[in-house]
Amino acid sequence: MSYGLERRMSWLGLALVKGIGPLRLKRELENYNYDPVKIWNLGESWVRTRFSDYAGKEYKRIRNEVDLLEYADDLKRREIKFITFDDELYPDILTDIYDPPPVLFYRGEIPDFKFSVAIVGSRKFRQYGKRATEELSSQLAARGVVIVSGLAKGIDRMAHRAALDAGGKTVAVLGSGHDYEYPATNRDLYRQIPENGVILSEFPPDEPPKAENFPRRNRIISGLSQAVLVVEAAKKSGSLITANLALDQNRDVMAVPGDIYARSSRGTNDLIKKGAQLVTSVDDILTVISGVGQEYRVTEELKSEDLPDLTDSENKLIKIFTDNIELNYEEISKLINIDIAELNAALVKLEIKGVIARDNGHNYYFKGLQNLLKPI
């Protein structure tokens, strides 16, 4: 066995040993130059001393009963892939957290996490939360932002579904292994997400959905995201756990304000009181994750002249904006040689079409051309 393969199998072996947690494992790896082969070969007594008697027992069982090469082949036959902390595909954004999982088991394709937002919320939702989730998720996904959530009932499900329906990418993080399609009501998403995204878990496939697994899952949801958006959440909610983990991981936390009389909004409204970014439109989110006027063209590959429904004046305006970050009215009028009335009409029309917008200081900035193809 080559050293590279031995290293990969050692990572896999460590991931299969119950009782070896990612935080303690990271600390031990730091003492051994991040060499999983050394850790894997230190033996049962070392594992018992450093982790627990239970971990030592499990380590012994895996060493004696599991052929790791056969195990990896079985995963491949079942179309379950895995990446280790060493792999190039391992998301860079996840290495920033204090306890990154050493191995991720997944179905689908790992996306680029340059722009990613977690959308989480209550399993029991109101029509208001449903509408906000569907609109924000679809608008973000249409702009190339990866939507991350936990494949639970309610808000999670709607976030994944809206992203898929918008033709975007979505990432579902499980609190179990891939053998369990939990909850059963999301079986359609288990089939569809791998076709345009990925379902992943740090747990081996045979790990059942247990209560203690979901906080661990939540840290990965926030860890894979530049920001976490909470749509609906009561005062005691798993979504608030995700928000707190996001703060620990130096991620931005955002919330959709809710009805002050609704229990399902008390958690989100409290987040806003404590300083979470208040979100009333997709622009609020894009401003946070990418900077006003600079990265709204996340997947922009279109040219204004390729699109219908634009006048000559509108085309001229767009060309000015694509070469500048922000412009005030005086700057625009100097750069474009058209009648003032025609200029005003073009600015209003492009604002209505969602191509440009104004910030609080009344500067204009470019948002993107995607809205001309897909109304929001």
Rank of each mutant, 00 (worst) to 15 (best):
K153V: 10
Y190W: 04
K38H: 10
G177A: 05
G43W: 03
D96L: 09
N324S: 11
G43D: 13
D35W: 03
Y34N: 13
S45R: 13
L327D: 06
F214I: 12
N218M: 05
D323C: 02
R27H: 09
Y180A: 07
S137D: 10
F51T: 11
A255S: 12
D312G: 02
V256I: 15
I325S: 12
L89K: 13
R143G: 12
I147Y: 04
I289K: 04
A246I: 05
L151D: 03
V17R: 03
N360S: 14
R157T: 15
D309I: 08
D309V: 11
I199D: 08
Y296T: 07
P101N: 02
Y364S: 14
G361D: 14
G167T: 02
N324E: 13
E70G: 00
Y182A: 01
G21A: 06
R126K: 11
S52W: 01
N186H: 06
G293V: 02
E70H: 05
Q249Y: 01
N186F: 05
L335N: 15
K374W: 10
A166P: 04
Y98P: 00
Q127S: 12
I260P: 10
P205I: 02
L302K: 14
S52L: 02
I220F: 00
Y90L: 03
I199S: 04
F366G: 06
V253H: 04
R48P: 06
H362K: 15
Q127R: 13
H178R: 01
L12Q: 05
K353R: 13
M158P: 00
M9N: 10
K374I: 15
Y128T: 11
S176D: 11
R63D: 09
L224F: 05
E88I: 10
E207G: 02
W11D: 03
G56Q: 02
L229I: 15
S45L: 11
V292I: 08
R63C: 13
L335K: 15
L151S: 01
E195T: 11
K236G: 00
S149Y: 02
T280S: 13
E135G: 01
K210W: 09
V66M: 01
V148Q: 04
I340V: 15
G43L: 07
